[in-house]
Design a protein around this nucleic acid. Structure first.
Lengths: 224, 224
DNA sequence: AGCCGCTTGTGAACGCAGGAACAAAGTCCC
DNA sequence: GGGACTTTGTTCCTGCGTTCACAAGCGGCT
């Protein structure tokens, strides 16, 4: 019962996570089976693409019927590695960091923040949820003690690389970076970047491109 | 001097936004010219890819010299449509919404929140930064009055679609969605999705895949 | 038991993004 | 003024992701 260690495309993995969320909702609603079409619709993707994504983990549906909601959910949980709660540390307790520390969407999906860090003395000692903000100096010790494998960086850009280095050296293998700088990490450490202002700027571009001439008329073409 | 309305790939637009940020930093530091190699390094991309991205907006560098920092910055500002501040509204003032409302990275990059909305009476009236949280009922009026063209949704998943519909009907043309549901919007309205828990789950998958057997050795191969 | 309809899983084509190598062009130096 | 070096802009190519379309398999009905 090996979980198919063959390479699964990263884009597919991202969608698998979405499928898992939809399946969880369906399971809570009492559904026992789903078709690829319905699941794809709920996830906002193409049915054929969904089937191809699922094919990466071997046959897991029944032809003529669909997918067993519970079984597929468990399968995805195992493949994604969120079966047991994963310990995360969060560095940089500003506005964004505080929000993430309190964000319910993480805890209910197999992720648990085990420590919060900040460099500012005024932040240290504050409680967020049921965690206390700790001094950055304790980072290595806490990471080692808790065995945290994921680090989230919400610090200012200037110190992000330094924090990244320390996290990697302490044994963290995955880093989610919200600071607007590209991070260099040693081999064996994955870094994913979320850049909020870039998202807005892409929207701004798409929005302005759509209106090359007129810029004041409120005529909005309607269509499904 | 039309700004090349020819289609620019979305992936390129996202990188242009990154280049713009780097250029702004360089300009503040007094630099007058940059080479593609240096700029690419700072942005974390391939030099050839950077030149290809820039080629979408016509020749804007000088061979043998590089790019003029100020000129390229202004060019990108114009192309991305962030020259004049764009009015944004934010709906859903929970932890994440509050953080975004206060996030300095937006205001300094051509985006300005002009209104915050929430459905909860306990939130309405609160001040965040220099804005007051308003009732969701005022959404249409405020969007019309301010001419906001961008909406940010940080509500619970259940009401996200309804908020999306109302924003679109009120004239918002671009929506940034943090709620974990796919949104359907009328034609002419762009929707971009940011799913934080998906990002973490992708990291979890990559992390577990990398360690199929050993799980404790701190041997970290160094590289770049 | 046999047939039919439904759904999955897979194979192939299309389009796009990414990377490397090459030619054009401008500047600096002699 | 001429040559050589530097750096851009472009072209080609490879690989990946996405989509469409078909064959295989299973349940339900007669």
């Amino acid at each position: 019962m090996q979980p198919r260690p063959r390479s699964i495309p990263e884009a597919t993995v991202a969608r698998l996570a979405v499928y898992l969320r939809v399946l969880t909702t369906l399971a809570d609603g009492g559904r026992s089976t789903v078709s690829s079409g319905e699941l794809a619709s709920a996830a906002g993707v193409n049915p054929a693409g969904l089937r191809k994504d699922l094919s990466h983990l071997g046959p897991c549906g029944v032809r003529g019927v669909g997918y067993d909601v519970g079984a597929l959910r468990d399968r995805l949980t195992g493949v994604l590695g969120v079966g047991s709660a994963r310990a995360c540390v969060l560095v940089g307790i500003g506005n964004l960091g505080s929000a993430l520390a309190d964000y319910a969407g993480f805890g209910t999906r197999g992720f648990e923040f085990v420590a919060l860090f900040d460099a500012s003395p005024t932040r240290i000692g504050q409680r967020i949820g049921d965690l206390e903000v700790r001094a950055l100096d304790d980072l290595e010790d806490v990471v080692t003690a808790t065995g945290a494998s994921i680090g989230v960086i919400t610090t200012p850009a200037e110190v992000a690389q330094s924090v990244c280095d320390r996290l990697a050296a302490a044994g963290v293998r995955s880093i989610l970076n919200f600071a607007p700088v590209p991070l260099a990490a040693p081999a064996g450490v994955d870094v994913r970047k979320v850049d909020l202002s870039v998202e807005l700027q892409v929207l701004a571009f798409l929005g302005q491109q759509r209106v090359p001439a007129a810029a004041g008329t409120a005529s909005v073409g309607e269509s499904a």
